[in-house]
């Protein structure tokens, strides 16, 4: 469904990603594992169209989407739920959700999408009229995920969904992600909580210094010595 081939990308003169190739098949849950600064976020931002790759191609559902901008990627059905929630703090939760269905295609079914999303996130329903900035970190993360789903994306990308959350909330966030996965969504997820994500994912890539050094099924990665040493600390 999504295929990156030999992607190079970075900010200004600095190249962060070197020759990244990866694929995500429909219905799969794929994770990218790596240390801080390895280029995980840059990979997701490149796929989302926020960064133009300097070389390589990205194809989505068989079409070349390498040069598309972020709003065109949203139209294609790719949504990124960014690191640190990134809600619109002075808007109500409902307004935040509606922004998730901003594109013309999504606007038509925004009411239906809202109902679907709220049935997945009953806690969000209780907060609809509150300002997003007044919510707790865990609630904000739920709203961010719900907002991402408003466009009914074909591919949902998560960037560090557990960042800065208390352990108990982290578990809840992962429960939600698992529920979404069960609905058949295709998911690409980046997490520092390596163990949690590998448990939830089908396959994983290990990213070090902007290069993919390992690619395997989650189970194999969980038992890989390098992964265990570098990321699980054992």
């Amino acid at each position: 469904m999504l295929r990156l081939e030999n992607i190079h990308a970075g900010y200004g003169p600095t190249t962060i990603l070197h020759d990244i190739s990866l694929t995500v098949e429909a219905g799969e849950v794929v994770t990218i594992v790596g240390a801080n600064g390895a280029g995980k976020t840059t990979t997701l931002r490149t796929i989302a169209g926020l960064i133009r790759p300097t070389a390589g191609t990205i194809t989505f559902e068989g079409e070349d989407v390498t040069r598309l901008s972020s709003h065109e990627m949203v139209d294609r059905g790719i949504t990124l739920i960014p690191e640190g929630r990134q809600l619109f703090p002075d808007m109500t939760v409902q307004e935040n959700l509606l922004m998730g269905a901003y594109r013309k295609a999504a606007r038509q079914h925004k009411d239906a999408a809202l109902q679907e999303v709220l049935s997945l996130f009953p806690r969000v329903r209780e907060r609809l009229t509150q300002k997003a900035g007044s919510l707790s970190g865990g609630e904000q993360q739920m709203v961010a995920i719900a907002r991402g789903m408003m466009a009914r994306p074909k591919l949902l990308m998560f960037d560090e969904p557990s960042l800065g959350l208390a352990p108990i909330i982290v578990t809840q966030v992962f429960d939600v992600i698992e529920t979404i996965v069960k609905t058949g969504a295709t998911v690409l997820i980046v997490e520092q909580n390596v163990f949690h994500t590998l448990k939830a994912a089908d396959r994983g890539y290990v990213l070090e210094n902007g290069e993919i050094v390992l690619a395997d099924t989650s189970d194999a990665l969980l038992h890989n010595d390098h992964v265990r040493q570098a990321y699980l600390g054992i």
Binding site: S70, L80, M99, A151
Partner: peptide, 13 residues
Amino acid sequence: AQNRAAAQLMGIN
């Protein structure tokens, strides 16, 4: 105005 990066992710030009 509130979050330019997030707005971009929503598909806002």
